[in-house]
């Protein structure tokens, strides 16, 4: 579990982003593009790690998280696994063949994208306060992960920001900007990244 907990955490967060919509945010054949700004607050370190870049979500295909600053890096989560690229080299990779549990996580993500709450409700209890959703880890979630709480704030049909609180006091704050939904397919480069091919 210690191997997959951070990933589960991440996917759960992005699952929440879309499940909070009354209607599925994006449908099959559509993709969401946007920018992100992430502040990672780590216990024992004075200043947060700040990064920014672009994000692409394509239901059925996966997600591409492209960090531009301060250091260019790409994380692609596809059907076949998770791949990390730095300086055009693949520096980290976990395939679903190695860890078929990733499939379950990807399915969870897919369910969330299509507005299917059943998958997420197994792990979270949901509470609404204005335009902010508070998601607490369910004590009977059955999975031993380090996530404690999520705060998701919406604005004009899109998720504006997510705050992620961990058991040890670490915190990630992610802001989403310039979000658009289009019918266009992912680019060939994005598809290659999702398939584990370095740019």
């Amino acid at each position: 579990m210690m191997r997959t907990a951070p990933l589960l955490l991440f996917l759960a967060v992005f699952g929440v982003i879309t499940v909070l919509q009354a209607e599925p945010l994006i449908k099959e054949g559509e993709i969401l593009r946007g920018r992100f700004l992430m502040d990672r607050h780590l216990q024992g370190f004075n200043k947060p790690l700040r990064s920014e870049g672009t994000i692409v979500i394509a239901p059925g295909k996966g997600l591409v998280w492209k960090t531009e600053k301060p250091f260019p890096a790409i994380v692609a989560i596809g059907v076949q696994g998770i791949h990390q690229y730095v300086n055009n080299d693949k520096t980290f990779s976990i395939t679903t063949n190695q860890f078929p549990f990733l499939n379950t996580l990807r399915q969870l993500f897919e369910q969330a994208l299509t507005g299917n709450e059943a998958g997420l409700e197994r792990y979270f209890s949901l509470q609404q306060e204005g335009n902010t959703a508070i998601l607490d880890k369910r004590p009977d979630a059955g999975i031993d992960w380090p996530l404690k709480k999520l705060l998701v704030r919406r604005n004009q049909g899109f998720v504006e920001s997510v705050a992620l609180f961990k058991e040890n006091g670490d915190r990630d704050e992610i802001h989403f900007l310039e979000q658009t939904i289009t019918l266009a397919s992912p680019t060939s480069e994005e598809l290659q990244l999702l398939n584990g091919v370095a740019p």
Binding site: P6, R40, F45, L49, S51, F71, T91, F92, P146, I174
Partner: peptide
């Protein structure tokens, strides 16, 4: 260099193992 790039990538990755106690 490869290990350095991987470490930096993990620091900013949404899926990275970024537990502060482990990282330090």
């Amino acid at each position: 260099e490869t290990l350095l790039n991987r470490a930096i990538g993990q620091l900013y990755s949404p899926t990275g193992i970024v537990d502060s106690r482990l990282l330090s």
